[in-house]
């Protein structure tokens, strides 16, 4: 009973990881890739737990998801500053500014 449910859990985890890895590698938006990388790190820690390596899972959670993710986010900002105008790195940067409020509309709401 217990082992068959564990097998189901493992298969679902592996499928999610594979799909996540594929989306992570194939996406064009770099910010989306960074967020997918953070999620991949979290799920990979779960996978290490299932492989009975809790120490590796601890390292993966701390380094993979906890430290590398923020470092990537910080690097993304540097990159955006360097490449300004060449590429769209953060897809909603422009969209956020499109939302320039017209006060009447908000007051009505």
């Amino acid at each position: 009973m217990s082992y068959s449910i564990l097998t189901c859990f493992d298969i679902l985890l592996i499928l999610t990881l594979l799909w996540l890895g594929w989306r992570l590698l194939s996406t064009e938006d770099i910010f989306k890739a960074v967020v997918l990388f953070i999620s991949f790190g979290l799920l990979m820690a779960l996978a290490w737990v299932r492989m009975r390596a809790p120490d590796v899972a601890l390292a993966e959670a701390a380094l993979g998801a906890g430290l590398t993710g923020p470092l990537f986010l910080a690097a993304l900002r540097r990159m955006k500053r360097i490449h300004k105008g060449e590429r769209r790195l953060d897809s909603d940067e422009n969209r956020g500014e499109d939302h320039e409020a017209d006060p009447e509309q908000t007051q009505a709401a």
Binding site: I38, L58, A65, G66, P70
Partner: peptide
Amino acid sequence: DIALVFSLLAALA
């Protein structure tokens, strides 16, 4: 302990 690390680092990102 791993869950503790998860929750500690959740806010960092």
